[in-house]
Amino acid sequence: MSGRSDREERREERPRAEERTGADERRQRLIKIGSAAVFLAIVAVAVLIVVSDGSGGGDASSVEGAADVNKLLGQIPQKELVLGEPSAKVAVVEFGDLQCPVCKGYSEEVLPPVIESRVRGGEATLEFRNYTIIGPESIPAGAAAVAAGRQGRGWEFVELFYRNQGAEDSGYVTDEFLTAIAEGAGVPDIARWNVDREDKAVVREVEETTAEARNLGFEGTPSFAVEGPGTKGLEPIGTPGSIGALEEAISNAR
C-alpha cells in the first residue's frame, strides 16, 4: 500500500520537477542575455567616448574659453554677425581679422565691458566684419565665421577663435582647428556649416567687407565705425585707444 503511494507521489512530482528545471533553464538563459547586454553597453559607451575624442577631425576639448564666451554673450540676440537688439539706435562695426593679435586683445579686454554696458542693454549693436589683411589663412577663417553666423553662432565663433588664436599664417587654421572652434561655439549643424563656409557667396562676403574697410580708409585691424542718429551714415572712428573712447563714440552717435 505504502509502496504504491510512493510511486504515485513520484509520478506526480516528475512533471513539477521538469517544470522547475525548465523555468530555471529559462531564467539562466535570460540572465545570460542580460549579462551580454551589460557587456555590449560597456563596449558601446567606450566606443562612443573614443570616437567623440577624435571625431570630425575637430577636438572641441582642445578649445579654450568656451564657458567665458558663453557667459559674455549669453541671452544677447544675434543675427548673422550682428550682436544685440535690432532696435538699438547705434550700430558699431568692427572690421577685424581673426588672425590679428591686436584684435584678440580687443576681444578680450576692450569689447567685453562695452558689450555688457551698451550692447546687452539694447543701446547699441556690435557687428563683426572681416577685414582680411594678415594673410591667406584669414580668408577661410573669416568665411567660417560668416557660416557660423548663418546658424546664429557667429559671435561665439569669433570670440572663441580669438581665444585660441595661433601665430599669424603658421598653418594652424586647418579644417580640424576650424571644426573644433565651430563645435566649441555650439554651431548646431556642423555638416551645413562645412558646406556654407565653402559657399561662394560667403567667400565673396569676406572679400566685399575687406574692400569696404579699405574704402573707409582703414589700414589696420581692428578698425571701428559707428552709425546712429548723431552720425552721417557709417562714420569711421579708427582704432579707439580705450574702452572709454569707444563708449564715448557710441554716446556721440546717439
Binding site: G34, A41, I42, V45, S52, S61
Partner: peptide
C-alpha cells in the same frame, strides 16, 4: 527584460553625456 535593457541603454548614454559635460563642454 525590456525594463532592464531600456534602463541599461539610458544609463550607458547618461555615462557618455556626463563624460561630455565634464571633459568636452566643461560645464
Amino acid at each position: 527584460m525590456a525594463g532592464f535593457l531600456i534602463s541599461l541603454a539610458g544609463f550607458g548614454y547618461s555615462v557618455y553625456l556626463t563624460y561630455l559635460e565634464v571633459f568636452k563642454i566643461e560645464a
